[in-house]
């Protein structure tokens, strides 16, 4: 499983970092760092994080890339 975050949408609400702290990490106010290739044991958490993003900036797919939904 892979993820892409639209960093133009991301406003640093940190909801993903609370729900999947091993995958998403917020540095300072706005800089989001994330692990694009999601470890298997984090899949459930990442799905919850994607669902909880206020601006729906996280795209989850089996293979990430342009146009993946």
């Amino acid at each position: 499983m892979q993820i892409v975050v639209d960093l133009n949408r991301c406003q640093g609400y940190a909801q993903c970092a609370f729900l999947a702290p091993q995958v998403f990490e917020l540095h300072g106010e706005e800089a989001l760092m994330f692990t694009p290739a999601v470890p298997d044991d984090q899949r459930e958490r990442v799905h919850r994080a994607a669902a909880a993003c206020p601006v729906q900036a996280i795209v989850v797919g089996e293979r990430a890339g342009p146009g993946v939904r």
């Binding site: 609400y13 909801q15 609370f18 106010e29 669902a51 909880a52 993003c53 206020p54 729906q56």
Partner: peptide
């Protein structure tokens, strides 16, 4: 920081900052 005073999830307070 992980308090829920601003809510959580998609309705997380837009005015929190």
């Amino acid at each position: 920081r992980r308090h829920s005073g601003f809510g959580m999830g998609i309705h997380y307070c837009v005015g929190a900052p």
